[in-house]
Design a binder for these strands. Structure first.
Lengths: 203, 203
DNA sequence: CCCAACTTGTACAGCACTGTTCGAGATACG
DNA sequence: CGTATCTCGAACAGTGCTGTACAAGTTGGG
């Protein structure tokens, strides 16, 4: 009664158009604000969305819920892009292509990930991270099966390394020690020899 | 007058022994607490040190100052250990030894680094990070000069990769997906082929 | 046109934290 | 032993946040 818009689960009653616009604006603003500061307050986000703080709480029960939806949306969007990456053919080429598409996404949404990690329970993070991670893992496993990638390292670890380097690259860029243009090539030429068969002729 | 112990720069007046003990206990507790939670409050730290909160503020002007000193001490200790690593001889072996010694240190002080990053200005972080980083950089450059490491990647980037993988390993351990025993070998056999000359025979 | 849905600012309660003050008590150390 | 140094708890001011309540306005949509 008192609360005008109580949605949160059940009641799929279509929202009025202006309400939909508000929600969209808030999510957009949250994405932008959290990217700048993972600790952005609801006041900041509401202001950036051009909306009253009360309105924000009308649509999202809590800050946590807002962060959750923002993160989920960010991941969903990323997945849309990743879905279009051609992973067939040579596993090495596939990995290169995957890197090319992934690293920009990661660089952009990394700060949101931090925000999510600070407010969401770990299992929720993993839940949303699972699908994109699985994608990498599948590719690596295929490469191993075909003999393109080394098999002396656990797949899990290789996936972790993949993400470590990508995130590291994002760090280097925000630190200004690396420019975005050369990033993809750099990452690729770093990871490929690390994943390739023949551990290196040294020793 | 009112403030009993005002040290902070100048006045190298020797502290009384119990005061020294308090300072030591606080720093130790800070290390432990910040390792568990990078946002640990002064109250928590004081309690863990078995000391009143007021006492803590008697020795450290602010939380920032405490974090700074804790981080600095942690880095100094790490450097002591790192100083004893033999980096002469084959660059690859040197790197392997450096990894062996570094990764434990990183795994232990990683959370403190996070705390430092959240409270200290970025240039202060860099200032304290500079020396250990230089160590890695020098080794890599030497390896490049001798022909052991590839030269097609910027040294800065290789250093960044080095740290990325180490931190990534630490993450994997705290996530329970990797056990401490196998970590060093895993890291080494990941990084070495990535740094080695002959980019890999593939393609 | 009308009403329910939506938005708004202000204001408030509650919390957690930082940093300071005070006054009294304990303790190192000369 | 005496004193400057140190420690303590309790208490307070100040800040910045979250989440809620209210009461009045605006707007979409049937």
């Amino acid at each position: 009664m008192t609360d005008s818009q109580a949605r949160t689960s059940e009641s799929t009653r279509a929202r009025r158009s202006d309400a939909q616009r508000s929600v969209a604006a808030i999510l957009e603003a949250a994405q932008a604000c959290l990217a700048l500061d993972p600790d952005a307050s609801t006041a900041e986000i509401a202001r950036a969305a051009g909306v009253g703080r009360v309105t924000l709480y009308g649509h999202f029960g809590s800050r946590l819920e807002l962060v959750d939806q923002t993160f989920a949306r960010s991941m969903a969007r990323a997945e849309e892009t990743l879905d279009q990456v051609d992973l067939s053919g040579d596993a090495r080429d596939g990995l290169a292509r995957l890197i090319g598409s992934s690293w920009t996404l990661i660089a952009r949404s990394r700060s949101i990930l931090v925000a999510a990690q600070r407010t969401l329970p770990p299992e929720r993070i993993r839940e949303l991270h699972d699908r994109p991670m699985r994608r990498v893992q599948d590719l690596i496993e295929r490469g191993q099966a075909v003999g393109a990638f080394r098999t002396d390292l656990p797949t899990t670890w290789m996936v972790a390394t993949f993400y470590s380097v990508l995130h590291g690259a994002a760090d280097e860029i925000t630190a200004g020690r690396l420019d975005s243009d050369s990033a993809a090539d750099l990452i690729t030429s770093t990871i490929l020899p690390c994943f390739a068969r023949d551990p290196a002729p040294s020793r």
